[in-house]
């Protein structure tokens, strides 16, 4: 599936119906999600792989991974209200899969270990950035993801925190690379200032197991 087609499918999916500020819920824009998944796919880290999406929300990255041929995907989220949206998004794409899509969802706190270590090949996620009184949550997600995977972790982080995140990743034993940068609008609820929307720069990082 090419990038344009993926982006257009992801663009039709539903986002959060009632975003919860506590969990910094906002949808990964479809052009970012599609480019992120496309980049990962070019590294041969989606097709046939076992993938976990931490903080899956409406399931955009989990569903996108399955569309690109992941063998099995688990989407984890702490907020049960997101699963109705994720399931309905999946149901809408029914005809794009042979049989049922190979996706399961698990309701869990990402930072509490309920999955066995090294169960997955790859983790793909857009974590909370830790700007709403939950600082450090992004690093907790990376730590959890490295624990759960054998091959690599792909995630989005604010470019302004790049050197800090890269250092943390290296301290956790991973090789860290910046694969790309996106600019996107964050809803005003998550910005520090009261402008309607705030454009932020976001890095796509890859943490590889050594």
């Amino acid at each position: 599936m090419n990038l344009k087609r993926l982006e257009s499918i992801l663009d039709d999916l539903e986002g959060f119906s009632d975003p919860n500020i506590r969990y910094e819920q906002y949808v990964t824009p479809s052009y970012v999600a599609a480019r992120m998944l496309h980049t990962i796919s070019l590294s041969n880290h989606i097709e046939g792989k076992m993938i976990v999406d931490l903080g899956t929300g409406p399931g955009i990255l989990a569903i996108g991974s399955a569309l690109l041929g992941a063998h099995y995907v688990v989407g984890v989220d702490i907020d049960s209200s997101v699963f109705q949206i994720a399931l309905s998004n999946l149901a809408d794409l029914d005809e794009l899969f042979v049989g049922q899509p190979p996706i399961d969802f698990v309701e869990s706190d990402v930072t509490k270990c309920v999955l066995k270590p090294k169960s997955f090949d790859v983790a793909i996620f857009n974590p909370p950035f830790g700007t709403k009184g939950n600082s450090g949550i992004d690093v907790s997600f990376i730590k959890a993801a490295l624990d759960l995977t054998k091959v690599a972790v792909y995630s989005l982080h604010k470019s302004s925190t790049r050197s800090f995140i890269v250092k943390k990743g290296e301290q956790l034993g991973a090789k860290v690379e910046v694969l790309g940068q996106f600019s996107y609008d964050l809803p005003a609820t998550y910005a520090r200032h009261s402008k309607a929307v705030k454009a932020i720069d976001v890095d796509l990082l890859r943490f590889s197991h050594r």
Binding site: V74, G99, Q100, P102, K112, C113, V114, K116
Partner: peptide, 30 residues
């Protein structure tokens, strides 16, 4: 096969979890 309850206090392995299934479906997956 991957899920554990090892995050609970006083639990060493928490694995495997016992399943009580009240409703089961069989699906077709590629």
């Amino acid at each position: 096969n991957m899920l554990t309850s090892r995050c609970l206090k006083g639990v060493t392995n928490g694995y495997p979890l016992k399943i009580v299934a009240n409703e089961v479906k069989t699906e077709n997956v590629d």
